[in-house]
Nucleic acid binder design. Structure first.
Ligand SMILES: NC(=O)c1ccc[n+]([C@@H]2O[C@H](COP(=O)([O-])OP(=O)(O)OC[C@H]3O[C@@H](n4cnc5c(N)ncnc54)[C@H](O)[C@@H]3O)[C@@H](O)[C@H]2O)c1
Ligand SMILES: NC(=O)c1ccc[n+]([C@@H]2O[C@H](COP(=O)([O-])OP(=O)(O)OC[C@H]3O[C@@H](n4cnc5c(N)ncnc54)[C@H](O)[C@@H]3O)[C@@H](O)[C@H]2O)c1
Lengths: 189, 189
DNA sequence: TGTATTTTGTGAATTGTTTCACAATAGATC
DNA sequence: GATCTATTGTGAAACAATTCACAAAATACA
């Protein structure tokens, strides 16, 4: 779009943070701008892509193709972020018949496929009850990172990274904030 | 299950935090245990339900019934957390024909339904491009809290709460952590 | 009933993060 | 090319969160 320069306050406005925050973070990662001249968009974008490893694609698998698993696997914009879903898995044989657009593999093929594609990260979208069991299996196959959508704390060796995404919490937190805001407001009536 | 008492370290273990953290948080909200006797499960659960308003159900709507919106609206465990999805909306007329289990309403009925059910919180799962526009509409109808799944910073009045859930970020962060862990490890070889 | 033990509750210390404030300087202006 | 101005980069200050450490109290047990 012809924009060659951006300033810390421009980026801060778009990101909803302060300009100081932007500069401190950039400084932390060695991103340098020009005093008075701001940051050059091209080199800034490249630097960010390197920092977030978006320049190299990462192969990931989705395990559990229910409501959430299907939604995630159909999302097309992951590619632009270096996230490459190479295969999806489910225990339910009914899901293996690819009536839908996406091929779902049986759990028996997890090992073969993760090895073939060098997969180290899995998205776990199975029910609460089977989460730990499937997690153990993934860890055994060499998975080193898990995005866990089930509301349980997974037990993993220290060399495995888990990021818990709890959508109920996310919604509840908004409900709570709204309640609190209203309560505060009614104090002034 | 017959458990009448829990200790800060029990809860901490399950939650993946320190016992001090648990006690400090409880203390902040006036939850009292017995020295040596721990916390009584029953009264603790009740206290938590009150703090998180889980005793009162909250009516919410889902706007945008694509991949994510459908997954969210089919999730049955929200009810147990006081989250009650009363209706779902989409601009696409094809979605209104309830071929699926869930009735999807046209956007024209948003006002009527949010008013009828006293809805103050909305889950926004529309494409990036229309997120701000739909957000404005929601705010106009009196919505006070938004769980935003689109990767844009919504502009809202100060009295509206927005919680941004960025699933690409969640996955990317795991990929990054795994990369960094591997890099560290290879320093020791 | 008295003593030992366990666990809470919380100030104080530590650690971490954000904001402030301003010197350094690249670029704009004349 | 001299001067003015806007913006960076970053120590220092302020603020926030976590951990430490231990007195107080409840329970267990002799
Ligand atoms: N859908 C949501 O909006 C939502 C919201 C909050 C939390 N979650 C959590 O996300 C997870 C997935 O939710 P969902 O709604 O997609 O559930 P779902 O029941 O629709 O799907 C789960 C899928 O996992 C498969 N599965 C079960 N056991 C398996 C195993 N051992 N190995 C492989 N696959 C197995 C099932 O066949 C099913 O297809 C759950 O833990 C849920 O609690 C979902
Ligand atoms: N699906 C995922 O896994 C995923 C991952 C990361 C981010 N997201 C984000 O979540 C949002 C939803 O993703 P999705 O995959 O469900 O998208 P989608 O395209 O499948 O669904 C979007 C839905 O919104 C409806 N819509 C469009 N404009 C509308 C309007 N003005 N009013 C009402 N409805 C409208 C469409 O008809 C469609 O049904 C997007 O912003 C996306 O970037 C999704």
């Amino acid at each position: 779009m012809g924009v060659t320069r951006v300033y810390s306050y421009t980026l801060a406005g778009k990101a909803g943070v302060t300009p100081e925050q932007v500069r401190k973070d950039f400084s932390e990662y060695g991103i340098k701008g020009n005093r008075r001249g701001g940051y050059l968009t091209e080199s800034l974008i490249r630097a960010i892509e390197v920092i977030f490893s978006r320049d190299r694609k990462s192969n990931v698998v989705v395990v559990g193709m229910g409501n959430l698993g299907q939604a995630l696997s159909r999302y097309e914009r992951f590619a632009g972020r270096g996230i490459n879903i190479v295969a999806t898995f489910d225990i339910d044989p009914y899901k293996h018949k690819s009536r839908s657009d996406i091929q779902v593999y049986p759990m028996e093929r997890l090992e073969e496929i993760t090895e073939r594609f060098g997969v180290t990260v899995a998205i776990l979208a199975v029910p609460e009850i089977s989460a730990q069991e499937v997690c153990d299996e993934l860890v055994n196959l060499g998975i080193r990172g898990i995005v866990n959508f089930s509301p349980v704390l997974l037990k993993v060796p220290q060399y495995v990274v888990v990021n818990n995404v709890n959508l109920s919490d996310e919604i509840e937190s908004v409900i709570l904030s709204v309640r609190r805001m209203k309560d505060e407001q009614s104090l002034f009536l």
